[in-house]
Amino acid sequence: MTTHPTPTLISQYASGAAGVDDTTIWAVEAHLETCAACRAVLTDAVDPGTRDLLDRVADGIATGIATGPPPVPRRRLLRTGVAARVLPWLVTATGLMLAAVLFEWTFNSLPSLVLLIAPVAPLLPVAAVWSRRLDPAWELTATMPRTGLPLLMRRTLAVLSTVIPVLAVAGWVTGHSPGLWLLPALGFTAGALALGTVVGVDRAALALTVVWSTGVVVPSLADGRLPTVLSGGSLPGWALATVALTAVVLVRAWRRPHEPHQNLLHR
């Protein structure tokens, strides 16, 4: 690209003169695309009629751009796609936490309902973002190159960014240590995704909720005190479980990122 075509050659190119072979024309054209100086030479080489035509076209396009509708601004937030569909489930999760706070204020003697419900609160909306029943465009989503765990993780992050502030407020007004509501919630979410890669996210979320309710919530309400898993001493265990489960999900997402996600395929 260092040798510039001669002005004669450029004028021959401009006038479409015979005697210049196709290969030379292509070479000149490729050079003109990248070289402003030679384009200036080309402008002088074309006949006045053509130059006039080009000016008129340029003017027409410029006025068209100036008077036409402005470009539509992109609304990036909607990229999360299912946001509107998941809203009712986010509201339900929020309502649940609110009810737990009120309950805790009213009945002082009972174990903290906020801590008991916090682990499973994100599971409801997480199941909703990857559900065949709730996603009207599931059949399209299932055929997309971008479908799979990475997309699910994106949606899960969006859910967590809404649910965690709610948990934070609930934990703050009831005066619990942040670790006690945050770590179990994160651990259960990671667990739902990890188990979801095997049985489907909605089933995994349901199973975890049932196990937690029957195994921990009901017994502790019957006993009248918090189980040891929700005491300060079990925090390292929760942290370890959360990290391990997140690692499982990440490794799976990295190894088979574009597997058609099971949950979208089975009823």
Partner: peptide, 21 residues
């Protein structure tokens, strides 16, 4: 054909284009 009712046509097609990488 399932779609998101609150999306405009342009947003929907744009979203699908994004999903198609």
């Amino acid at each position: 054909f399932g779609f998101y009712p609150r999306f405009t046509v342009r947003e929907f097609v744009e979203y699908i284009a994004w999903l198609k990488e």
